[in-house]
Design a binder for these strands. Structure first.
Lengths: 191, 191
DNA sequence: CGAGGCCTTGACCGCGGTCAATGCCCGTGG
DNA sequence: CCACGGGCATTGACCGCGGTCAAGGCCTCG
């Protein structure tokens, strides 16, 4: 199974699709690479593309007055995109690759147009959005309901990859605390 | 234009749909009324229905150890639902009507099944989810990036209805602060 | 008129933020 | 091979915002 069908298969059961439908989808995909530090999506800009990570890692953040707040991190088999861009608006966030990465590039305009007539494409997009919505709800829940410590241990148990691959400086604002507080909190755990 | 088509029209251009398609959608709708205090959706339960408010108001909150955190408020022409229920999971939230209300009841199971074959229904649902996702992103942004005062004045300017129709006790946790802090903050503005 | 709901106000204090210094690891160049 | 510098994490000192607890005011409704 190649990378393209693997990607599609995350959201649709490719076994149930005929070849024509799969081809329709892959039409809007191509391959791209990024270097560590590349920022394909930038705050206040419009972009037409989203990216699926085959190999690599990225973060998303918004910034105001030299203050950055990280909103999510993406790794293999996850999507890097601006939902605002998808909705035809300027992005609120900037995305930056944390490692050299290989990606599938997705043409948002074309795929959205295709969704108007193709129910397979329509469902494909809906599933992606639903996954993101679920992530947002979960995140919102934790931010409102958990103490800092609890938020960290949640990550520790459920997304250990974050701690291994993401600098703590970025992780801190993602968890809604200062870098120093995160550091102290880790010290307490290490006892 | 009746209430049903008005509802559909919020997400699709009914003028562009033929009668058969509209009928397909309205199949899954019916009318229901609620009394102030009714809670049709409850934390940890599965429910098959969502509600569109024709007239009335509702809130959604999650609770833990006698502590409640309000997550959203809905008024006329907005939807009361649990996204987790829609995804086949137990609801994380409870929804409660704040006023006697008239609603359109939506059968989630049936409409989801219909979406598999009807592209119109599929798009209808996608639009609803997209609207909700946009709301979540906006809310997350404010919670992470704004001070309490700024969050309140944002509401004041963009959603004044909240302040008029929702008890401040509920609004406080929605804004991520204690009732007392919200009260002091209002006092400062009133100077 | 009394009770209860809701909002406000006051006093206190602790969590976590800021600022600043130090430690540690690693890549680079002399 | 060692020395230096930069990036990142840690630790300490300080302090203020906002939370908690408690009391008081002000409605509405029975």
């Amino acid at each position: 199974m190649n990378e393209l069908t693997q990607f599609i298969n995350r959201y649709l059961h490719t076994a149930q699709l005929d070849e024509r439908e799969i081809n329709t989808l892959t039409n809007y995909f191509s391959f791209t690479n990024f270097k560590k530090g590349d920022r394909p999506i930038r705050q206040t800009y419009h972009h037409d593309f989203a990216y699926y990570i085959i190999q690599g890692a990225a973060r998303s953040y918004y910034s105001k007055d030299h203050l950055e707040v990280n909103t999510w991190f993406a790794f293999e088999q996850e999507i890097v995109a601006s939902f605002q861009n998808y909705r035809g608006k300027a992005s609120m966030e900037t995305t930056e690759f944390l490692e050299d990465s290989q990606c599938i590039k997705i043409d948002l305009h074309k795929i959205a147009k295709q969704a108007e007539t193709s129910n397979v494409t329509n469902t494909f997009m809906r599933r992606i959005i639903e996954e993101y919505t679920e992530f947002l709800e979960e995140r919102l829940y934790r931010l409102q309901f958990s103490e800092g410590m609890e938020r960290y241990t949640y990550i520790l148990q459920n997304e250990p990859e974050l701690i291994q691959r993401v600098p703590l400086t970025f992780l801190a604002s993602y968890l809604g605390m200062s870098r120093e507080t995160l550091s102290r909190l880790r010290a307490r755990i290490a006892l």
